[in-house]
Amino acid sequence: MSISMSINLILFILSPVFALLANGIFRKAFARFQCRKGPPIIQPFYDMMKLWKKKRAEAEESKNIVFYAGLFLALFFLIILYSIFFGIISFDHDFILFIYLLVSIEVAIICSAFASKNAFSYVGSMRELVLMIGYELIIAFSIINIMGVSGETSIFSIESSAISFPLSAFLLFISGFAVLRITPFDTVNAHTEISSGMPSEYSGKLLMMYYFAERLKEFIYCIFLSKIIIGWNMFTPIIAVILIIIYALMNASSARYSFLEASKRLFLMAIISFINLGWIGL
């Protein structure tokens, strides 16, 4: 096994720890922008431990196989996603699978939320389903554009920087607001409207799994964006932390769009990202 492969394997194993720490940094930065002290950076670990110990309480209607399987499936897809990203599994044109997996994680969670038969989860899933069409299209078109411009065939081997594809990098940054559920595109888990939406019916270990899947998804997106901006080198984690702080700042300095407004804006950006494909002559 080569040294780079060993490092990637270590990073792959430690990535859940980094994902939770990244969330801790996000929460700390968010609190600081609001003139609050905020929780300690390791607070997400405490949260996970607390939820692990909590008893589950679900409605009788929610107890079905899809409700439980959705979360396990989402975590399984995340493991494959991390494997591709850190080069554990690597093959030509793996970016297609990368896009598919990003969609599949969301779809698995949406199916689970739908199966819960909870009104808040139902509305949250509907919102996520509509917004997902917008932001996943942006991500898909932008990744295809980046692969085309850089001439690479694998996500793992991208070495070009954002200077080569500025608009795609910018669109990926914007769609990050929807992926990370950050204002103004956090209508999916708007707690004052739909009581946080999809996770409404989860409790105890299931809620822990949901939050864990969300944290893993957020972290991989930030690392991916960082890799797109400066390539894979020693500065990639630093850029990822800066991105997290920028997202925290944006979360602190904006209100939430209404669902219709958010959908309109994401679809408009999807159209822009489609037009952007012209850069590579498609």
Binding site: C35, S254, A255, R256
Partner: peptide, 16 residues
């Protein structure tokens, strides 16, 4: 009101 539209920062500032 700002808490209701997800603008937690203004919520904090007004309460300060």
């Amino acid at each position: 009101l700002f808490h209701d539209i997800g603008y937690e920062t203004l919520f904090m500032y007004f309460w300060k």
